[in-house]
Design a protein around this nucleic acid. Structure first.
Length: 471
RNA sequence: CGGGAAAUGGCUCAAUUUGGUAGAGCACUACAUUUGGGAUGUAGGGGUUGCAGGUUCAAAUCCUGUUUUCCCGACCA
């Protein structure tokens, strides 16, 4: 009766990296292509992304943003306009050639991000304060020629969303930056059930060309950090470099302020690495493309149709496994796929008017009366959602360590993975030393402080900050 | 990009040391019997060994190059 280990999946305890790729493949999320770092997102993996797109896109529209589609190619001269930006991205841009030779026209790159394309366009369409704020978003793929690649976590072709906005004032742009960070946090906590830490990147870690970069940091099951999204405040650096200006109400020329923000399919990697277990994927109900899996055992067609009818009426997505496989196979398959709830509808149980409801997150089996199946499902879905978040948060909180001295800091890095919450003076030399000594990088600044000492040099601390290892 | 390992039907691997007709399990197809934790039987289909050169009468096997994957670093959403 008890569950058997899934043979396709390496145990999480044995080899976390192997476990991750095993789950990606076993759950039919991705396949490799013949080009390194260009992954095939299979229908089930893409269905998860479609859920994310649907939720976010609605939130973007509610906050006044409109979608556009910009070109994929950036001419060299356009890319070169903002100096810091070029220096930050140059090592990983992919160049376009024609027939393997130098192109006949100007040299071009494939967009690694689209700031310059938006700026070029914004210069043409922004004339007056009446054109602001300009709130644009695009869903697209970008290319960054990464050296080391892993499914969802780091690929060369990245499927993402990038918002680009222009504002009349600094305050308004700053507000937008934080507002979109909040939208991301809402998505991740309330839909993906990922507890996240939000804050500011250090000067060293911020986006090339930004004045300030904000980040959403999640912690994976193994205590390693994953940056799940960013929101940048640009000031008017790009706008000045591109000569974007508008006339204000007093008929004076002003330079607008800019933001950009993005999230990628990397979040799917986070869902896998935060919630998954040795049986496979575990999806939070709010993001699961299929919430309920129905496994018929024996001749139970009538009861299954009734349940399907009720689920449809309640708008709950479902699948029925009518394959010829044995029940055990179907159970295991439903677990690999991470369907939040599984209904085992079998002849044996039905003789007593019972259906077995199984929670994927806890693997708990609950016997309920046939008539109560739908109400049980309706109760369980939000409960599973909440429990998954709570468990992930509890686990993460246990792996946040505090350090006030460098000895403590080093001690933590030697003993375990996780985040280290500490204080920092703000100097890059300390950040570099920590990275040199421990491989830990600054994750994010959570607030400015007046007291305490820098964990590294002992000078007066300016910030409370998290350090961690990252994917 | 540095260091290491690997690449043989869809998957996991054998055959490589000592060159000599590519083989197994799983998966797949058909039929039958099965059905509460990855069913059983019978009969089938599917590879010329990542790719490109070279050595040889003969290459999965030896040599060179290259691509991809995984691990460890450096880099990044």
């Amino acid at each position: 009766m008890s569950e058997k280990k899934n043979e396709k999946i390496t145990s999480r305890e044995v080899d976390f990296a192997k476990w991750y790729t095993d789950v990606c493949k076993a759950a039919d999320l991705v396949d490799y292509s013949s080009v390194k770092g260009s992954m095939i997102i299979r229908p089930y993996g893409y269905a998860i992304w479609e859920r994310i797109v649907a939720i976010l896109d609605q939130k973007f529209k509610e906050t006044g943003h409109v979608n556009v589609q910009m070109p994929m190619f950036i001419p060299e001269s356009l890319f070169n306009i903002e100096k810091e930006h070029v220096e930050g991205f140059a090592p990983e841009v992919a160049w376009v050639t024609q027939g393997g030779k130098e192109p006949l026209e100007e040299k071009m790159i494939v967009r690694p991000t689209s700031e310059v394309l938006f700026c070029e366009h914004f210069k043409k369409i922004i004339k007056s304060y009446r054109d602001l704020p300009l709130l644009y978003n695009q869903w697209c793929t970008i290319v960054r020629w990464e050296k080391e690649t892993r499914p969802f976590l780091r690929s060369r072709e990245i499927l993402w969303q990038e918002g680009h906005t222009m504002h009349a004032t600094e305050e308004e742009a700053k507000e937008e930056t934080l507002r979109m960070l909040g939208v991301y946090q809402d998505l991740q906590e309330n839909y993906l059930a990922l507890p996240v830490i939000t804050g500011k990147k250090t000067e060293k870690e911020k986006f090339a060309g930004a004045e300030a970069s904000y980040t959403i940091e999640a912690m994976m099951w193994d205590g390693i950090a994953l940056q799940n999204g960013t929101s940048h405040y640009f000031g008017n650096g790009f706008a000045k470099a591109f000569g974007i200006q508008f006339l204000n109400k007093n008929n004076e020329l002003e330079t607008p302020y800019q933001t950009s923000w993005g999230v990628t399919t990397r979040m799917i990697g986070s869902i896998i690495m935060v919630h998954g277990d040795d049986y496979g994927l575990v999806l939070p109900p709010n993001i699961a493309p299929t919430k309920v899996a129905i496994i018929p055992i024996g001749k139970v067609d009538e009861v299954v149709s009734e349940i399907v009818c009720d689920l449809k009426a309640k708008d709950i997505t479902y699948m029925v496994d009518n394959s010829e496989k044995s029940p055990g196979f179907k159970f295991a398959e439903a677990e690999v796929k991470g369907y939040p709830i599984r209904l085992e509808v079998g002849e044996r149980d039905l003789k007593e008017g019972i259906i077995t409801v199984v929670r994927r997150d806890t693997l708990e089996k609950i016997k309920v009366k046939k008539e109560e199946v739908i109400s049980t499902v309706l109760e369980l879905l939000p409960k599973i959602q909440k429990d998954m978040f709570d468990r992930a948060k509890e686990r993460r909180d246990q792996m946040i360590y505090e350090a006030s001295t460098y000895e403590e800091f080093l001690d933590h890095t030697k003993k375990h993975n996780g985040f280290i919450k500490t204080r920092w003076c703000g100097k890059e030399t300390c950040e570099d030393k920590i990275k040199e000594d421990t491989t830990y990088k600054s994750r994010c600044i959570i607030r400015e402080v007046e007291d305490g000492k820098c964990v590294c040099c002992g000078a007066r601390a300016k910030y409370e900050i998290y350090f961690g290892k990252q994917y």
